[in-house]
Design a protein around this nucleic acid. Structure first.
Lengths: 203, 203
DNA sequence: ACCTGAACACCGTTCAAGT
DNA sequence: ACCTGAACACCGTTCAAGT
């Protein structure tokens, strides 16, 4: 009885991921459980394991989808912008995503693989692809810099913007009279790039 | 039977926190549970609730202890250093702490209060105190800057260094041929400060 | 007053049994 | 082949009962 053959495997996977995304968006990663997911889609626990290896697998696949939609927005923000504007646009778009899709964005970083199990490459690839966007724009901005310098700067800035977002939401660094994270980010980018585009050699 | 009256309330609290710290250091925050804690100290579950309101309360108190020992190391690193060196020392000490006490340090940011409950002030105060160290050194370095500029710069740099650490451990941004996080941090600080100490006005 | 241990409502995961 | 639902080993939290 129940739902037998109502959905293909792919459909089951899709509605399960949608239910998971809904639960996370509403209550955060902690509000996600296998039983709640199947409760939402009218199946029983066992059926989840036909489509996902386990809950971690489901979360990873959900996080990959989040990364894909983030990447799409970043790409749209760059468009045909000149490099300096593109870099600002990347940062502001990342912030906007974090502000609007807070729980789903947080889930990417909150989830940890069980002890010893590595993060799947399919996910790290997507993070790397996103990071490459920043690196490309930085290379356009400073064409005479060595690839090593560019990579270092891209990592410093990407991590920096991410850190501002993470601590901004943590309540844990909610400064009294604190400026909005957009301002902090602009300060980071402008001052770093002022220093970076000016000094020709790495220290 | 059991352990009745073997420990005062304060002693019970202490050994419970020590057991929790040991479990987290060994297996991460996910490896912590009330039953494992009491298993280590020879009590039963119920007794934990004499000393802590619940597991979240225990974790918060554990995280506050971690922040205290981090703050102590940061203070020692500053010593009588001139401001520029003090800022570098703060960053490198933060990194070293994250590298050596990885799981306990991660637990500070991994733990989230249940929906709606705010982070206790006792914890946010300790984070703010730590952050103030950076702000003070920055004010010494740039005495003519407005307090607003200093606060903005302190937040950009603190968040930046934190972001570099977080993404560095996440495996999620483990760049191929990536430079050690110490180098990325130095790049962030040097270039930002080069830009910051030079431009007299905020954009 | 201190502490136990059973009880309750949740969890993730497995798997024999049903269709 | 698909799916169920009971079973197992874990959770956090409460609370009557014991000393």
């Amino acid at each position: 009885m129940g739902r037998r053959n109502e959905h293909t495997r792919e459909e089951l996977r899709e509605i399960a991921l949608q239910a998971a995304e809904h639960l996370v968006a509403e209550h955060g990663l902690a509000g996600l459980s296998t039983r709640k997911v199947v409760g939402h889609i009218g199946y029983t626990v066992g059926s989840l394991y036909m489509v996902f290896r386990n809950l971690d697998d489901l979360i990873v696949q959900m996080n990959e989808r989040t990364l894909e939609s983030l990447q799409a927005r970043l790409l749209a923000a760059i468009a045909d912008q000149p490099p300096a504007a593109a870099i600002q646009a990347l940062a502001q778009t990342y912030i906007t995503f974090a502000l609007t899709e807070t729980h789903r964005w947080l889930a990417i970083y909150q989830h940890r693989m069980p002890e010893g199990q590595p993060v799947p490459e399919s996910l790290t690839d997507k993070v790397a692809g996103m990071f490459a966007l920043a690196q490309q724009q930085l290379a356009r901005l400073c064409p005479r810099r060595s690839p090593e310098d560019i990579a270092l700067a891209a990592r410093a800035l990407w991590s920096g913007v991410h850190g501002i977002c993470i601590l901004g939401f943590d309540q844990k660094l909610e400064m009294a009279g604190g400026r909005p994270i957009q301002d902090v980010t602009r300060s980071l980018l402008d001052h770093y790039l002022a220093g970076f585009t000016q000094s020709p050699y790495e220290i």
